[in-house]
Design a protein around this nucleic acid. Sequence first.
DNA 1: GCCGTTTTCGGCCCGACTGTTTTCAGTCG
Length: 596
Amino acid sequence: MNMRINNEDIVRLFNEMAAMLEIKGDSAFKIRAYQRAASTIEQLSWSLAAAAAAGDDLRKIPGVGKAISEKVQEYVSTGRVAAYERLAEELPPNVLSLLEVPGMGPKTVKAATAELGITSVAELEQAALDGRLAQLPRMGKRSAENILRHIRAQRMRSDRTPLGIATETCDAVTAALFEACANLVSITPAGSLRRWEETIGDLDLIAVSERPEETGPALAALPSVREVLVAGDAKTSVVVDPGIQIDLRIGEPDAMGAMLQYFTGSQQHNIRLRDYANRRGLSLNEYGITAVDGGATERFANEEMFYARLGLPWIAPELRRGAEELDAARNGTLPELLVESDLRGDLHLHSDWSDGKFPLEEMVEAVAALGYEYMAITDHSQGLGVANGLTPERLERQVGILKSLQERYGMTILCGSEVDIRADGAMDFPDDVLAMLDWVIASVHNAMGQERGVMTARIARAMENPYVTAIGHASARLLGRRDPVDFDIEALLQQARDTGTAMEINAAPERLDLKDTHAARARELGIPLVINTDSHHVDGLANRRFGVAVARRAWCGPQHVLNAYPRAEFLAWLRTPKPERTARFAAMAGGPTAGF
DNA sequence: GCCGTTTTCGGCCCGACTGTTTTCAGTCG
């Protein structure tokens, strides 16, 4: 049994099988079945390989039936899947890389490989240049030129954009459009940005304007636009400067419900929702809802009305992933999700004593301005020399200053530290130094290439330290820049529960760490989550919205998040001896009976 | 390949845009 196969491997397997079946020209429904299974598996909070190894029935997963479950079993027990290998053998090498070129769909890839013998993107580029590509059926000079352009554009940009950068681009484009269009009423982001996915493919915007015909051309004319891909009446697509594609749709105020719903997706959510509607004799599109047997299209001003027409409560965009959320909506079991205003503290903050940009007082002042009840200053420990980490002597002085500041604020100011977890799992401060602190975050900042077992044992050891309150940004990933460290997340979360250690959701948009599926698993295990901004600057405090989004995507409500509790309850948890904190948290999260 | 308060067989989401056609196939989301 190979339990080291993770869900991502299985997702990739089925997505590649779907792509290969497309090129073969197999049934569109079979292809969709593989895609749906991949999408559902991607969202699981638990390891499919481990469940398969344990003999669980995988067919309980929606979209997974006999054939797919057998392929997972085969993959986990042998490390290979015969059906996948057969497909790969039937097709020319590298066909999947050809499919990734925009404009190259399954039909064109098939023709290019079969008739021109193309086996790589470089050969495709050559064929586009020398005119052979244009000779293919239903191709022509323009199509070949577009393919060539896409190959060159693709080389210049990475495939997906981290959420933080996409948000900045969205804000900039929106402001520029308002500047350029006097008649613009609103711009609403949809798509993966509205669902707060950690990375964004394209930016989907919906515009409402008094002069809708002017909006698309105005977008195409913005100075930051590098290229115009599509310019139609209903839709304009451009690429703007950081290399992000923007799809702009024109909406009408009295029909925004369907428009927003349609373009928020996800694709799997929409497929399932339309299937659900079809069974009730209704057909959905971006303009409204129509009875299958004819009649006028009903229009809806907002999404609440749109979902209500289907007999469903509104479903938060973060949950629209095409898996459990539709059943929950039908059964009335959608969760009450965390909102930004539920947060009552921030417990991971840096000042200019280490690598922050602002003095202690200014950080405290900025946090107090949010109306928080508590906070912790957590500058780096001594080992992180590049970040001007504090020696025990400096830390002791800082503690003294924070205690004097405390007298000026109604807010509780905890003395903390973000302490390095050394390569062997030892803490970067001795216990007698940690003992003077109220709040200790333990984080990995170096030796990130450690083998899985070593890294897991390293973090697990840190959790055993009686002074370590929480693990910070556990995977240490930087979206688009640094891969997560390799660890056994299930083992670590079990250890967190056993030791009474909280797990951070680091809200810095380049981190989002824990990620959504891991946070969901922590919630299931009853581990307290803490949403921190890890701010090095007063402006960083606004990043809490990204952390809240991760928690929402993990189906978390305020009861699952430590820093959403009132000060008295939070401090009572903190005063509880560490081994008893898991039980303490369970009592807090248990409901109104858990008082003081 | 999956699925069922219509179904264990016969269904399976929907539309915009482009470029190639001379009415629509292919691609995309």
